[in-house]
């Protein structure tokens, strides 16, 4: 494999109270893949993303982004949290939320200016939300809110994107719009990691997959490892899914 390694996770272990949520995860994600993290509820999918991003402190383990510790590579990484993690009645507008994506590169105290505004408008346009730029965010539909979140990550202009269930509760139009943007990102050489729930769409949307259930079950190209064997190991004996193709 002559690809560069975008994300490397070693021995990552996370526990809430006494119960381990992630156990000894080793993971290598090559640059330029569109990867799904799949697993049952409580498998630690969101926790994996959050501990890679330093939102949750792991008990053990390390994360490197392009061979350097994550803390030094923050600017290369963008994050789309679960839509339900914020209060959408917050007094702000769509464009304002997208502008937040520029705050990281601005650093402390400095305010966004014309350049940041322009980038944010472009990001809104890319997700098809330009017409809603001044709309109060509570007045957006679930799919529109998800697009705004995606635009906020796009404006970070990162190399690696982490997304926590971006397809949750959105309609087919938005799902297609989002997956097209993700594929575009991959085409541009970016690495995209997505917590995903819909197993049926994995072969269609993604080229890389990680099976997770507290421990890592398998990781690799979808065409090689997305099979009944791994699905059964991840979801339990009775899980049957029709894997076409």
């Amino acid at each position: 494999m002559n690809q560069k390694i975008a994300i490397q996770v070693d021995d990552l272990t996370v526990a809430y109270n006494y119960k381990p949520v992630l156990w000894d995860i080793d993971l290598i994600v090559p640059e330029g893949v569109l990867m799904a993290i799949v697993g049952p509820n409580g498998a630690g999918k969101s926790t994996l993303i959050k501990s890679i991003l330093g939102i949750i402190d792991p008990i053990a383990g390390s994360v490197t982004i392009y061979d350097k510790p994550y803390a030094k590579q923050r600017k290369l990484v963008a994050y789309v949290p679960q839509k339900g993690s914020v209060d959408w009645d917050f007094p702000t507008t769509a464009i304002d939320v997208v502008m937040m994506g520029t705050y990281g590169s601005l650093g402390w105290i400095k305010r966004p200016g014309a350049k940041e505004k322009k980038a944010s408008l472009e990001a809104l346009e890319k997700v098809g939300m330009l017409a809603f730029k001044n709309r109060q965010i509570s007045q957006l539909s679930g799919g529109q809110q998800q697009r705004v979140f995606l635009a906020r990550a796009l404006v970070q202009n990162a190399s690696i994107y982490f997304m926590d269930e971006p397809f949750q509760g959105v309609d087919a139009t938005t799902e297609i719009a989002i997956i097209n943007i993700l594929k575009e990102l991959r085409k541009a050489g970016k690495t995209v990691v997505v917590v995903h729930h819909d197993l049926q769409t994995v072969p269609e949307y993604f080229d890389w997959v990680t099976f997770l259930n507290v421990k890592k079950i398998a990781t690799g190209p979808v065409k090689d490892i997305f099979n009944d064997d791994n699905l059964t190991k991840t979801y339990g004996i009775n899980y049957k899914v029709a894997v076409s193709k």
Binding site: K50, L53, G54, I55, R74, K75, V77, Y79, P81, S85, V86, D87, F90, T92, V97, M100, Y103, G104, L106, G107, W108, I109, K110, R111, P112
Partner: peptide, 21 residues
């Protein structure tokens, strides 16, 4: 002085952390 940071934190604390604040 910290208007931008306060606003970000009020809206989305986890995201604020990932941006390095």
């Amino acid at each position: 002085l910290f208007w931008k940071e306060f606003k970000l934190m009020l809206f989305d604390a986890d995201y604020t952390k990932t941006l390095g604040f």
